[in-house]
Amino acid sequence: MAISLVAYIREFARWEWARKFLAARTAPLVIPPYFRNYPELTGKTCTHHLFCMMACPAPGAIDVIRTPEGWQPRIHIGHCIRCGLCVEACPNGVLSSGRILESMFRDNTRLSFSFKIDVDLDKCMGCGNCAVACPVNKLIDAQMSHGGRASTDDLLLKLSDGKCRVLHVEKCTGCKTCEHHCPNEAISVARLLEAVHAPEEVP
């Protein structure tokens, strides 16, 4: 009894024990390497496809700016939600975050984009701003008249019978210029993201 009491006191009177008892902390708080943090530049060349901006769900989180070295995506901390969609959407692997690029390479997956243009004919008043503003239209028919009327049917958007018609939706690049130029919020562009496995062709 007495011996065990002495052993007990001796054990707990040690300086190391007291220091550990009073100043113990959990392991240093570090962010693990696999954490999907803010995207960082890998140094590969950006080709200005803007898929990162299209995939981004947070307003104002990413933009692509022109620097003396070329185009460069820029992440805005405070807006970015660290979802990693820009990393997955980039066809060139300009951005990297956590292990997204590694797992995409291992699983052979890719995000594919398609676009759907929806025109609310009740709201459309036929001003033709969308068709004139559309950069795809501008490439096909640079001579497009002010009201959005044109002779060719190869266009993405065209005005006929006083309403906006979508002719070739597969030509859409998803820039949403028409949506921004519509005074009546009649036209809306949906960007459909699809994760595809083992794609045959690289966009």
Binding site: P57, A58, P59, G60, G78, H79, C80, I81
Partner: peptide, 12 residues
Amino acid sequence: GNCPISGCLFAR
């Protein structure tokens, strides 16, 4: 979080 800084996804 992002919300008090910029409004995040709600700032539309």
